Computed example of a mutant assay.
Amino acid sequence: MFDLDKRWQLHPQAALRPEPFGAMLYHFGTRRLSFLKNRVMVEVVRSLPDHMSARAALCAAGVEDVEAYVKALEVLANSQMLEQTS
């Protein structure tokens, strides 16, 4: 389960590349590719290190439907695109 109250960041081996539809995420270690098809999600992922928690990043992005975004963040964490920080 994705912990909204923890700090998260893009994994050091993952890169985010903006695209007209949103962004592509590529993990150089696992060689996995993910797509972010929502610009708000791109903003949330980029801003994660700037906030004390994922919940704060979602709030700062103006996200109201938190559950849908939590599922997407959980998928990214499970695929090692995101990692928890201290």
Rank of each mutant, 00 (worst) to 15 (best):
D3Y: 03
R7N: 03
W8Y: 14
W8R: 01
L10C: 06
P12I: 03
Q13S: 10
A14W: 00
A15T: 07
L16R: 03
P18V: 12
G22R: 04
G22P: 09
G22M: 05
A23I: 09
A23H: 13
L25S: 00
L25G: 03
H27E: 14
T30I: 10
R31T: 07
R32E: 09
R32D: 13
L33E: 15
L33V: 12
F35V: 11
L36D: 01
R39N: 12
V40L: 06
V40Q: 03
V40K: 03
V40A: 06
V44H: 03
L48I: 08
L48C: 10
P49R: 15
P49L: 11
D50S: 12
M52N: 07
S53W: 00
A54Y: 04
R55E: 08
R55Q: 11
A56C: 04
A57V: 07
L58S: 08
C59W: 05
C59R: 11
A60R: 05
A61Y: 04
D65H: 09
V66W: 07
E67M: 13
E67T: 14
A68C: 11
Y69S: 03
Y69A: 02
L73R: 06
V75D: 08
V75W: 02
L76G: 01
L76V: 01
Q80L: 13
Q84M: 14
T85W: 10
S86C: 15
